[in-house]
Amino acid sequence: MKNSSNTDMKQVFEQLANMNKVEPSINLYAQTLNKIQRQKIIPLFWVKVVACLFILFIGSEFYLTTNKNNTAKKDISIIIYKTNNILYDE
């Protein structure tokens, strides 16, 4: 089979094999340990999300509680009104 390509693949592979191995930076170990440590810390984003949800929860509880008190006042005023009617009819 005629090889019409211009590229000598044997030469290409020889070039690849002749590349030098490189020594990694001595700081890389410390950087790796830092990365491992950072994994364990809860990201600040999620802390803020939880804080917002907590504030929303407290706020809604406060709203519901004050709303309940207002409803109770209405109930009392209805009773007083009925009582007044009964007395008046008599």
């Binding site: 191995k21 490189v22 990694p24 930076s25 890389l28 950087q31 790796t32 990365k35 491992i36 994994q39």
Partner: peptide, 23 residues
């Protein structure tokens, strides 16, 4: 590190990959 270097051909990216591997 050297294996990562063959994929990305620059030191900074190879270092990042190396860290991720060991994590």
């Amino acid at each position: 590190f050297n294996l990562a270097l063959q994929y990305v051909q620059n030191i900074e990216d190879a270092e990042e990959i190396t860290q991720d591997v060991f994590v």
